[in-house]
Nucleic acid binder design. Structure first.
Lengths: 137, 137
DNA sequence: TTTACAAATCGGAATCATTACGTTATTATA
DNA sequence: TATAATAACGTAATGATTCCGATTTGTAAA
């Protein structure tokens, strides 16, 4: 997902393409890992932009619902990143820099066999650690 | 893990077996799913017990570090349950009642092959949905 | 291009889980 | 039972997130 695809998606769903929305998309497009609402706020403030919590959180949630951003919760704080593809996948997440590596292994086929009377609504599979770069710092 | 095992573990590590600690263990022993600090507080208050946040959180963390309680984070809130065994396993977690079912499938052996230069520090694999009981309510 | 209105943003207060802290009480041990 | 260390109390502080009334902005129609 890139910025233009995301903007098109917004418009085709009747949402307005505002300046703030573009700024937020630009930020996540140039990152390649999970970032928090606070990371985003700091970035925008450095660009001499004013930001309201309302605007930040409303749009992060909207983007997540629309599939523009993926989200995960790490130590009590929501983290967001650009959606990196339409195929089902999971992530290695670096504890230091938040950057990710896609993992194509998914154990759900195996698991479903042992949950026959359960209604499965979702699952989470994440691997945490240090990426090659952060191991040398 | 049952209450007596946990109390022995506490004592053998030099921790005191206080009334509050027993109350907290009793609570988790009679539950069979993930519960929050708030769930515990409400339970203790109903028993006409006074509770300090300090006591609750300090002991929840202690129990987690000692392996007496397992923990996971669901929608921004930490959840705890009695440790249900020494073997490595994962959980199906009911979105309605918090009860769990152990899952023995673990995909990490497969995954490690694609993360050769990464330092793996942990992983999380959880399945969410409705248990058989909660589907009928 | 202006107008009009719905949608979005602003600024700040409120909320909720969790942590921190000085004081008081309880536990284990001698 | 006296002692010292550990734990609990009560409450204030913190940090992320949500909420809200007032104001501004984007878009579609005139």
């Amino acid at each position: 997902m890139n910025v233009n695809e995301a903007l098109d998606l917004l418009k085709s769903n009747g949402y307005k393409a505002t300046g703030k929305r573009k700024d937020i998309l630009d930020y996540f497009a140039e990152q390649d890992g999970y970032r928090t609402a606070k990371d985003l706020i700091i970035h925008l403030e450095n660009g001499n932009d004013t930001v309201s919590f309302d605007t930040i959180y409303r749009n992060l949630h909207l983007y997540n619902e629309m599939g523009i951003l993926e989200t995960t919760e790490l130590s009590g704080e929501k983290h967001f990143r650009m959606n990196c593809g339409n195929h089902h996948h999971h992530h290695f997440i670096c504890n230091e820099c938040g950057r990710t590596k896609a993992i194509d292994v998914c154990p759900m086929d195996d698991v479903k066999k042992s949950l026959v009377n359960y209604a499965i609504e979702g699952h989470k599979f994440e691997i945490y650690g240090l990426c090659p770069t952060c191991q040398n710092n």
